[in-house]
Design a protein around this nucleic acid. Structure first.
Lengths: 196, 196
DNA sequence: GACTGAATAGACCGACCGGTCTATTCAAGG
DNA sequence: CCTTGAATAGACCGGTCGGTCTATTCAGTC
């Protein structure tokens, strides 16, 4: 049995990512998923309700994807963050720079559309930031990462810059912004100073 | 004589900022500016052509706004960057967090719509980044700002994080992200180390 | 003051939007 | 089998979209 609901969300997530929420019509989603409109409105009360489901799905997907790098026990915390950037750059290139950050892009667009959407996006954003902070904290505990910007602040800064780098990458059609950011973060911002 | 063209661009810029490009109809712009459709299509070949003019206008406006802080000779380079963040936070609060970065938001959305829009947004982004780099370089030359991430890299990182902070601020309806970023940038990332 | 091209004005167009509605299919439970 | 409600299917709705078209006004020039 096909999981119609999940297929709709998956198709919607892909389209929202490439053409944004407002740039994607219900019919675009339906024809991408080859599912009739009746099913859509059987599972979702409205386009906005559907968008909430897409946000939740994307939040989980990003969490899982980041976990692959950030919870890789074979790597030191700092190396995990390096891996995160590498994977991000690969993803950008694989998608030919059509997709930005699923959460950042949707947050930017949806925050202004309705309160429920804004709050859902905000929650999703905070969770990923916290996930990153955990890794930074581990690096601080083992002495690999400097203690001075505390983990929450450092993670916040990196997360913000990550969003900006993805925007720049999309605009420039190049993964260079992500690679540049990786260099700055892993060479200057995070590493514990040897002398002090 | 009214400068109809400029009024259209100004109205469009405001609407694009709050409701995005795809979320703003021609008629929204016309009724905001109280200008009939005939004038719009007299001055602009299409909505996309209009958007190009809006990008150019916003790029110049951002440049001028940043110049107020970044070229304030009464402040040291590092203090100028602090002022930039303060002004940004004020702007966010004044607009009740409805507006993100005019350039970043448009870049994100328009990069995927057409090549001309993508290139225009990319150019605008690069210019502001360069403007910021100049200020960082001045700070390095007078010894106030650390030399290690070179000016271009540091500016790039700050610019990226700035974008992310504005997204987060919009999603959270709070200027805290911008203030947090200011602290990290001006206390940890930029200042020259006293000991070394 | 007649002429002319730029600018103003808004009715109008087909296409498409999100959403509704009715009809039909289908699998599970009695 | 028959019933039942979830799921499928898509025609259809009013409204709005970006864009076109014709008509009119207006400022400058000879």
């Amino acid at each position: 049995m096909r999981d119609t609901k999940a297929e709709l969300i998956k198709a919607g997530a892909g389209l929202f990512l490439r053409h944004s929420y407002q740039g994607t019509g219900i019919n675009d989603i339906l024809s991408a998923a080859k599912i009739p409109k009746g099913s859509f409105y059987h599972f979702f009360a409205s386009k906005e309700d559907f968008a909430l489901a897409v946000i939740a799905c994307q939040a989980e997907e990003v969490r899982a994807r980041w976990a692959v790098s950030l919870e890789d026990a074979s790597l030191s915390p700092l190396r995990r963050i390096e891996a995160l950037f590498d994977r991000g750059a690969e993803r950008l290139e694989a998608g030919r720079f059509a997709a930005g950050c699923p959460l950042g892009g949707m947050a930017q667009e949806m925050a202004g559309l309705s309160e429920p959407l804004r709050m859902a996006a905000n929650e999703a954003l905070k969770k990923v930031e916290a996930q990153l902070a955990t890794c930074v904290r581990e690096g601080q505990e083992c002495g690999e990462i400097a203690k001075t910007p505390d983990a929450a602040d450092a993670a916040r800064c990196i997360w913000f810059a990550w969003q900006g780098a993805l925007i720049a990458a999309k605009a420039a059609k190049s993964a260079d912004p992500v690679r540049d950011l990786k260099r700055i973060v892993t060479q200057y911002l995070l590493p514990a100073k040897r002398s002090a």
